[in-house]
């Protein structure tokens, strides 16, 4: 009955919020992840970098089991959150995803109102209290700095928002279900520089309360934002260190080649 204990309480005790042990991933016969061990710290921002197809997104999506729906997906090894293997049979995947939120590459609001987008995650948990929902929606939108912009348009379609606003809405939607971990899969790659700056600022603020893992193509972004950076190449974890160290004085030649722009 370990699950009953308060998760925040645990995360304070544990330095390593997320752990991967001997993880291998296959898509049918293709080996996408070739055996990775990794520990990710609580309340830090960890960036995954590497060229396209290096497995960083696949690896990220292991932590909320989003790969489960991919045809031909198979995994070996263990993924632990707060010391619990999330690929065990009795794990409730829905419960897990409430704890581990995700923001996607392209803003993907539901074709519904702004309000409905943010309230959705709570409503599917069976929460019906109108006042509670309203407060929660307001809170979440305030956290992402969108409240003042949409305060009077809560019933308008989310699709009418700009790309940057949509992405902030998607983050608000994720925050509303109170996760402790947020996975971000290139959250700014589809946005203009101004929106990107706003989102980065937001991510930086969020790390106080959340453990954040972010996949990015943008080396500057990784350098600016993250505490730790992991470099992936061809399904392997090549180097993982404090960002400052990795970007200024990498151990491995491959890492240096990549961050100096010699390939990828």
């Amino acid at each position: 009955m370990k699950e009953k204990k308060d998760t925040i309480d645990k995360s304070l005790k544990r330095k390593h919020k997320l752990q991967a042990k001997e993880v291998k991933v296959f898509y049918d016969d293709f080996k996408a992840i070739k055996g990775i061990d990794m520990n990710i710290r609580a309340n830090k921002i960890t960036a995954f970098i590497g060229p396209s197809g290096c497995g960083k997104s696949t690896f990220l999506r292991l932590f909320n089991r989003m790969n489960d729906y991919v045809d031909g997906f198979r995994m070996e090894g263990e993924i632990l959150i707060d010391g619990e293997n999330i690929y065990k049979k009795k794990v409730n995947v829905e419960q897990l995803r409430k704890q581990v939120g995700m923001v996607f590459q392209k803003p993907n609001p539901f074709p519904k109102s702004i309000y409905e987008n943010v309230a959705y995650g709570l409503k599917i948990q069976g929460i019906k209290d109108k006042n509670y929902l309203r407060d929660k929606v307001e809170d979440s939108l305030k956290q992402v700095g969108l409240w003042s912009e949409v305060e009077n348009d809560l019933n308008k379609s989310a699709l009418a928002l700009s790309g940057g606003q949509q992405q902030r809405l998607c983050i608000a939607r994720t925050l509303a279900v109170e996760p402790s971990i947020i996975l971000m899969d290139e959250p700014t790659s589809a946005l203009d520089p101004i929106s990107t700056a706003k989102i980065e600022e937001l991510i930086y603020e969020l790390k106080e309360k959340y453990t954040i893992v972010i996949v990015t193509h943008n080396m500057q972004q990784a350098g600016r934002l993250s505490d730790y950076t992991a470099f992936f190449y061809m399904g392997e974890l090549i180097e993982y260190d404090k960002s400052k160290k990795l970007f200024t004085n990498p151990e491995k030649q491959q890492t240096e080649n990549y961050i100096t722009g010699r390939f990828g």
Binding site: E94, Q95, G126
Partner: peptide, 12 residues
């Protein structure tokens, strides 16, 4: 009980 029972109900 708690969240687990809720989860089981939903699974059923």
């Amino acid at each position: 009980m708690g969240p687990n029972a809720f989860g089981n109900m939903r699974k059923i």
